[in-house]
Design a protein around this nucleic acid. Structure first.
Lengths: 213, 213
DNA sequence: CGCAACCTGTCAGCGACTGACATCTTTGTC
DNA sequence: GACAAAGATGTCAGTCGCTGACAGGTTGCG
């Protein structure tokens, strides 16, 4: 909040147009991500130091950390947006669909994006699979997705059958579905993108889906 | 391998009795874990430095790292054994049981251990929930469990229905079950151990179980 | 114009972790 | 019991990720 000379307040609402400052900031972020990406692909994640990235982008290490909270963030931010996309796709599904099917269909946004540019997805999975830190970070991101999707799944499941003070069902269903997605992704990566991701996700989710046994 | 003066070889087989050396080594490890545990409980994981742990155990920081690969390992080794226990419990289940039920029953070894000493389990979950590093490490451990259990689940599922070059079903089922276990554990912790873990695991796994919809 | 907000680099420091070296004890063998 | 290999330990120095504090420059806006 900023107090003007006449004593009135001008509160910044987030509906303001980007402004040059923020746009440059985002541009730098993007460039930093691009530079880091290239280095990671070339020499691996662990073998690349933050100093290298910063220097390649023409700035000090300290400035790098003003744009990203940590080294892994440069990669992991790529996953952040996906959570919101997934949630948006899920609410779009017709209410008549059961939770499991709706989740499967929501995953299509990932499947389609991957099919559109398999090499990018492949590289992303490979890089994030390299270091334990990154593997862990990806899992953490999945937890965020889960937290985002669970309330939406809860609506579809309806009220719990009985007392059940803490209803674990929505979280369980969501987590199970995400686990399937994850398995499919790994299998897809292991096949070098040969196997159709579409089918892998289907297989994974069908094998757990209600009525499979 | 050791070459003796007459030119013969004496190869050490791993079937040797513990020996004082290994026993002391294990004792030091245990003591290190105990000391660290106490410090973590008292002042938190992040607020505790490796130097503190080492000093409290009467050794140098360097020596600490000769017993544990990393700071998080001191806590995470506690999960290592559980994987083997889980696998052992799973093979014990009758072959007539379907994979999902067998997994549920295998999880009883965790449920029972937790009910026997709830405070320990509660503290363990709380500590590992503190730092992002530890949360991530716990997830990594679950991946180990998954790798251990997947082949066993594969046996129960039998041959894939058709071609299905890479059969994702065993991994999917295993991962989904572990996800349920995880959800139940978190819910149990959130309830401060009030809710019976037994029921939470049941609820979580039933909600995903085949035939639930 | 002038001022405040923002961005920058530099320096210093912490904490996790590692390699190398020297020292001392234990262990197995003759 | 002497001897040599193997193991354990401490110290030192160094890397890397990350952070706070300070000083100076640039930009946006009234």
């Amino acid at each position: 909040m900023h107090v003007t000379s006449d004593g009135s307040y001008s509160v910044r609402v987030s509906v303001r147009k980007p402004g040059l400052r923020e746009r440059t900031r985002q541009a730098v972020r993007d460039q930093l991500m691009a530079v880091a990406w290239e280095l990671f692909v070339q020499q691996g994640y662990d073998a690349t130091t933050v100093d290298e990235i910063a220097e390649a982008a023409g700035m000090s290490q300290r400035s790098f950390f003003r744009y990203f909270g940590s080294k892994e963030d440069v990669v992991l931010v790529k996953f952040e947006a996906v959570g919101a996309l997934l949630a948006a796709a899920l609410v779009e599904r017709p209410v008549t669909e059961d939770a499991w099917t709706a989740l499967r269909r929501a995953f299509d946004v990932i499947v389609l994006a991957t099919e559109r540019d398999p090499r990018y997805g492949l590289a992303l999975l490979r890089i994030t699979g390299q270091s334990p830190t990154l593997r862990a970070g990806r899992l953490e991101q999945q937890i965020r997705w889960q937290e985002l999707l669970t309330p939406l799944v809860a609506e579809r499941l309806g009220a719990p059958p009985a007392d059940a003070d803490p209803d674990v069902r929505p979280a369980a269903v969501t987590a199970a579905a995400l686990a399937c997605l994850n398995i499919a992704n790994v299998a897809w990566m292991d096949s070098d993108g040969t196997e159709p991701l579409d089918r892998l996700v289907d297989d994974a989710m069908r094998s757990v889906q209600p009525g499979a046994f």
